[in-house]
Amino acid sequence: MVTWEIPGSRKELSRYYTGAETYLTAVPGESPLDDTASQLRRIVEALSLTKPGAAHIPLTTERLRDLADELERHTEPPTDRLLGMWEGDGVVRHDPVTGPENTLAPPLVMHVAEDGWVEGEVTLGLPYQGPPAAVHGGICAALLDAALAVANHRAGNNGMTAKLEISYRRPTPLYQPITVRAKQLRHEGRKRFTVGEIVVDGEISAAAEGLFIARRS
């Protein structure tokens, strides 16, 4: 396994190879921070599954508050942190969709697929619910926006989202593996045209078309 991780940095070099696959997003690792974020995801999920009236909920609040207070003493103000978290080269580890260090992120880990596509598989639980038993439409939009950005990254030219159009064809189910895939179709000057979709059991549940514009260099 060949990786180029930068110890202590919030960013790691992308396009690194682990066995057969070439990853385009940060890969969840063994770092204390990745581990803590994944434990936190577990609690968010456990709370969402807790039976109404469970007696231990108030006790949980105290324990969480103590942990938060302790952590707070070890942190920098957010604006100071902003500078440090962008150090290093490659993909960020804190993205709200793909970042293993971000509790909000499932995280969606994407790798190179055939024919210019990028893809990743993920299973979402109750914290991501919109309609009963289905993934929230906004979460689908967030997954797709992030996937399209990864496809741009693969194509070698990034940009900020200028327009995102999503067609929802059927509900995207919770607790079932879903595949999120994307591909940049073409680019013209600073514009990038990119498409993507969420696939469940071989059928597309949501499809996206995005226009991205590169920042002026």
């Binding site: 938060a68 942190t75 957010p78 942190r81 509790t103």
Partner: peptide, 15 residues
């Protein structure tokens, strides 16, 4: 409280 921790994890040293 969880939300506080989610935020704090973005501001703590990785190690």
């Amino acid at each position: 409280q969880l939300r506080r921790i989610v935020d704090l994890l973005q501001r703590v040293d990785v190690d």
